[in-house]
């Protein structure tokens, strides 16, 4: 029995065959040499992403069956959700402003 995922032949090799996505992500997303590209991609905080993704991968089928779609409304995972959060915040601020203004007008 071998408990190590050795691949025979060329060395260094590509990594274990049973590479799980979280292991790859925590390496390819932010551990390479830092070279400024022309296009600035604001990749999410990798740890947050990895943790969420693991939950996501493990539960996506269950969640879909249950009609749960939290990832669509989670700002860290969805830019659309992030925009919705901003809109909601805007709406609340406007409401608060209106209240304050109307309060001030009454005095």
């Amino acid at each position: 029995m071998t408990d190590v995922d050795f691949r025979q032949g060329a060395y260094p090799v590509s990594g274990p065959q049973t590479t799980n996505l979280a292991d790859i992500l925590e390496r390819v997303l932010d551990k390479g040499i830092v070279i400024a590209g022309d296009i600035k991609i604001e990749l999410l905080d990798i740890e947050l992403l990895t943790i969420r993704l693991r939950l996501f991968v493990a539960s996506v089928d269950t969640a879909k069956k249950a009609g749960i779609d939290w990832w669509e409304t989670d700002p860290a995972l969805s830019s659309r959700a992030a925009r919705n959060v901003m809109q909601e915040e805007n709406r609340l601020l406007r409401k608060r402003l209106e209240e304050l203004e109307s309060g001030a007008a009454e005095e």
Binding site: Y11, V28, D38, I39, L43
Partner: peptide
């Protein structure tokens, strides 16, 4: 990397 000395770059390194 299996064939020569290699420095991996992070995903999404892009140039125009």
């Amino acid at each position: 990397a299996a064939a020569c000395p290699t420095v991996p770059l992070p995903m999404a390194t892009l140039y125009r």
